[in-house]
Design a protein around this nucleic acid. Structure first.
Lengths: 152, 152
DNA sequence: CCTTGCCTTCGAGCGCGCTCGAAGCCCTAC
DNA sequence: GTAGGGCTTCGAGCGCGCTCGAAGGCAAGG
């Protein structure tokens, strides 16, 4: 495991400068092994093995098994994990991600609905960005004017 | 209650153009009544009365009582509610806010620690902003290239 | 007087997203 | 052969931040 993981880290570090953020594109372009064990995926993505199993359980990723019943992540599965992680990073609810991947599984006819889902989420992200910038302004104000009391 | 609340809405709407976002400065500058009932504060801030009670319970706001034992929010208390709401909006954990207000209560000698707390939170916000922008890029990419599959 | 309605306290419950532990299988190394 | 480590499934538990309901008080209006 650690051999493969180290190889992955080397790959990434020689491809780009730093380890995170692990983008979807990076994973796609990377010379990632065709098959990875759960611990390798965990090390690569920063998602714990427990959480990877959970994601599979609730239908966010499909993962094949080897003869002994162990999970085998192929490149698609790893890409899916990274994609899901990105969506979670932006606070997309699990239920919405479930809906999205269910639509993907149902085939191309669901593309309009997927698109709508993504656009709705895009709006959520933009709202969140505005909230954060507002909060940042408040905190910055507090920091720069420290000593002034005002409602704190 | 609704009379006062309507007056508040009018005040805000004539002061600025729209209702939210309710900033700390706005509240300070606003001609807000000296004393407000919990329902008024709820209507003004968008925080439910239940949550306002909860915030008081856990020490985020101190609120006086009238003769009948009902909460009376003065301007400071309203300002505090708005400030706390801002911090929560930026995902500052309740525990950190508790720590902060505890420091405020302890007097000016704690200002360095407060400042450190705020600066740490500022870093959190900046990280969060970067995450969100990364996720936004992914979602935007998905939206614009829709039809391309790739790890979705 | 009695209803209406907002207020009070207290404690329990909930939804989300993990997170963990138990019990057991399989493979490798010694 | 056996010890170790990593994997499996399953189901329960947890931490956070509310959220709610019950039971009752007080004040104003009809």
């Amino acid at each position: 495991m650690s051999v493969t993981t180290d190889r992955l880290r080397d790959l990434i570090e020689t491809t780009v400068g730093e380890l995170p953020p692990l983008t979807v594109e990076l994973v796609r372009d990377l010379d990632i092994p065709e098959h990875m064990a759960i611990a390798e995926v965990a090390a690569l993505t920063g998602v714990t093995a427990h959480t990877l199993r959970y994601y599979e359980r609730i239908g966010l990723v499909e993962v094949a098994r080897d003869a002994a019943g162990r999970r085998v992540y192929d490149r698609d599965a790893v890409g899916r994990v990274v994609f899901v992680t990105r969506l979670r990073d932006s606070d997309m609810p699990i239920a919405a991600i479930q809906r999205y991947v269910a639509l993907v599984k149902q085939g191309p006819s669901t593309e309009p609905e997927r698109l709508a889902l993504l656009e709705a989420h895009r709006d959520d992200i933009l709202n969140r960005l505005r909230d954060l910038q507002g909060a940042l302004a408040v905190v910055d104000y507090k920091i720069t004017t420290y000593g002034g009391a005002c409602g704190s």
